[in-house]
Amino acid sequence: MKSLPERKKWMSLLAKAPSELVSNTFSDVMERHGLTAEFTWLRKPEIGGVMIQARAGATGAPFNFGEMTVTRCSLKLENGDVGHAYVQGRDKDKAEKAAIIDAYLQGDKAEIFAANIIAPIENALAAVKANREQKAAKTKVDFFTLVRGED
């Protein structure tokens, strides 16, 4: 089994990944390696809300900021590996795939799933962020104050 920080990382990436990307990379891997995800539900996909907290003044005491939608599920592969998913939005299909991927990432196929699903998601999300930040950098300005004359 992989160490905790890695699982935390891949689950976080799956939560934020575009649904289409998860779905496409998942079916590619399953097809290419002749895998059929046989599993039993521990918890069927369920849509719910999470109350997001923030801090007063950014760093002070917490307050309840507002909710977001989340879909979660848990399942068990035939080999006994248990997968969980908590993904953003109302997307039962994505949650199911994320939980299967989570389960496979703990077994002997971990490297295949890491290289063909998690890595592309990480790259895609990093590219979105880089794109955003480089656009932002272009709008960086230097204001300068004009010194007023004596009269």
């Binding site: 719910g48 809300g49 109350m51 907290q53 923030a54 950014a58 900021f65 955003r132 932002a136």
Partner: peptide, 19 residues
């Protein structure tokens, strides 16, 4: 919606800023 829980307070200091 069933309430799954409360998040940890978000860290706006780590915000990926567009403005």
């Amino acid at each position: 919606l069933p309430r799954f829980g409360y998040s940890n307070p978000i860290d706006t200091g780590k915000m990926s800023c567009i403005r």
